[in-house]
Design a protein around this nucleic acid. Structure first.
Ligand SMILES: [Zn+2]
Length: 345
DNA sequence: CTTCTTTGACCTCTC
DNA sequence: GGAGAGGTCAAAGAA
């Protein structure tokens, strides 16, 4: 989607334009009226009037300089806050990217904790082919808050306790849904066919069993069950990996198909060289992108959609405005400056 | 008619 | 080997 970048042009006052020397006749907007009137009326005014005006001008210039310093200071603070946040996000991004690279880079080469396990002992084993179709031991747990778009991922390597790693990728996703919704449908972009439902011992709500219906040969299954503690949360457990591309649907963001919630799907660029702060939320995060690899993509798509949405961008602008207007010193000085600039004050 | 869901029966596993 | 639980099958019904 080609949403225009969010550009917060905070041109409350450009320090470079606020040199007191400029406030004579070519001054910037705030003192232009006074300066120009002083210049144009100079020939016909008395010495006293000229002195009064000059004193006033000096006073205004001094206030202007102080205000400029204050604004510059505030800009500095805002830039620092944003830079700190950016650093934090980048660090998180890097960490998750490494995790994903590790997880997906080790599919043919298991992590040290699971590698080198001897040939599985010939213990009891299910005869059905449902257990041997996939290719890793990875267990991934994801908690997703659909209502807020928050997404938390915990990736865990989990070899089976008896050492019989059957290379099944298991992923658990917790999704918050409407408690009144009894359908147990978790929208993850894939097509599922329900093949069973069962009431389990430790949970009063039934567990539904789904198979991937997009490709007949796809081995992926998922189990969906409401959380025993919170009926508004459904836990979906995915087993196996899809052997086909994700079905694309209208409204999805191709640029945001980041696997495993690894990277923040937007870049934040701060142009601190001037007073214009630009937050570019349309670029991709530059993190690892693994297409056709799993079900965590809806998380990031959701985040992408929210970031790109007018609501999010408006909220961002409002937050920036709040940050500025929330500073008492800033608003006081601004109000005082405005009052002084008004005629007859 | 086709496709999907429901649901009871059956199978497998673990204790 | 039996019981209990989880997982799957497949017939029947619904859409
Ligand atoms: Zn599939």
């Amino acid at each position: 989607m080609g949403t225009a970048p969010v550009c917060l042009d905070l041109m409350v006052g450009r320090p470079m334009d606020r040199e007191p020397s400029l406030a004579r006749c070519t001054g910037s907007r705030t003192e232009a009226g006074i300066a120009s009137s002083a210049c144009s009326r100079a020939p016909s005014m008395t010495n006293d009037e000229a002195k009064i005006l000059e004193a006033k001008l000096t006073q205004v210039s001094e206030e202007n300089r102080r205000l400029t310093e204050m604004i510059a200071y505030l800009y500095g603070n805002q830039a620092k806050i944003l830079e700190a946040k950016l650093t934090q996000v980048s660090e998180e991004n890097r960490r998750l990217t490494e995790m994903i690279a590790y997880l997906y880079g080790n599919q043919g080469q298991q992590p040290a904790s699971t590698a080198g396990s001897p040939t599985p002992p010939a213990g009891r084993k299910r005869s059905r082919d449902s257990m041997d179709a996939s290719h890793s031991c990875d267990v991934e747990i994801s908690n997703r808050n659909v209502g807020t778009g928050e997404a938390e991922h915990v990736d865990v390597d989990s070899p089976l306790s008896n050492g019989t790693c059957r290379r099944i990728k298991v992923k658990k996703v917790c999704t918050r849904i409407d408690p009144s919704d009894t359908s147990l449908v978790v929208k993850d972009g894939y097509q599922w066919r329900k093949y069973g439902q069962k009431v389990t011992r430790d949970n009063p709500s039934p567990r539904a069993y789904f198979r991937c219906a997009f490709a007949p040969s796809c081995p992926v299954k998922k189990k969906v069950q409401r959380s025993a503690e919170d009926s508004s949360v459904v836990e979906a457990t995915y087993e196996g990996e899809h052997n086909h591309p994700r079905p694309t649907r209208a409204g999805e963001l191709p640029g945001c198909t980041t696997q495993g919630g690894g990277s923040v799907p937007c870049s934040i660029s701060i142009n601190s060289s001037g007073p214009t702060i630009t937050l570019d939320l349309t670029k991709n995060g530059g993190g690892v992108q693994v297409l056709d690899a799993g079900e965590a993509q809806p998380d990031m798509k959701k985040v992408c959609r929210e970031v790109a949405s007018p609501e999010f961008q408006r909220a961002l602008v409002e937050q920036m405005a709040r940050e500025l207007t929330g500073d008492q010193k800033f608003t006081d000085a601004l109000a005082a400056a405005i009052l002084r600039k008004l005629p007859d004050y």
